[in-house]
Design a protein around this nucleic acid. Sequence first.
DNA 1: GCCGGGTATGTCACATCCGACATATACTCT
DNA 2: AGAGTATATGTCGGATGTGACATACCCGGC
Lengths: 105, 105
Amino acid sequence: MKISKVKRLRAAGWKAGSAAEFLGLSETEAALVELKLALVAAVRATRQKRGLSQTDLAQRLRSSQSRVAKIEAADASVSLDLIVRALLAAGASRKDVQKAFVAIE
Amino acid sequence: MKISKVKRLRAAGWKAGSAAEFLGLSETEAALVELKLALVAAVRATRQKRGLSQTDLAQRLRSSQSRVAKIEAADASVSLDLIVRALLAAGASRKDVQKAFVAIE
DNA sequence: GCCGGGTATGTCACATCCGACATATACTCT
DNA sequence: AGAGTATATGTCGGATGTGACATACCCGGC
């Protein structure tokens, strides 16, 4: 998600288990990306099920069509915050959000 | 979460069902806050279960103790992204993250 | 062919979030 | 009481995310 991450990784070597910690970080990052992908798919599915256009959802979100497009494209510039907001704004219930999470596996 | 939200709400009146949409937005916001609180509690629980100090977790996160403290205090300046990263860095599995979500109810 | 609604992509100024640091509080040892 | 460790809170410069706009790319009538 962040390109600058590599920079920060290189700087300030870590105390122990370098490789392991690096892997750990990667896995965390991977899990987060998978999570985002799952939620993003749920956003599009929910929006379409409700017959909303990206522009409609954008209004509910108080955002713009282009940002909704970026959300659904899992653009690197969209935060988890915004994705979840979009999912809720699209009409998903809290249970639906949970289900989207469960879809991670 | 954002104070400027009220400002944006006031500007550009919405086309229909003003009150309903306003409520919808509030509910979205409330759901997001509840979600954050649930996850934040999971971060602290997971960290303590693993016997990690905030400083330890900060290292795994490549962040600082003060930010971990803010995460656990559900400070307005922490994003959902960071909370989930912290939860994963604390050692939670993806399933654990799901469970934290389920705890929303 | 060319509209028109829907979607995608790039850019930018501005808002928000971030890590880091300083500092404060609290609790436990000795 | 003083030292050590853990946590909380405030601030700040720089990194990242945001809405808005322009514009391009579809398709399905016309």
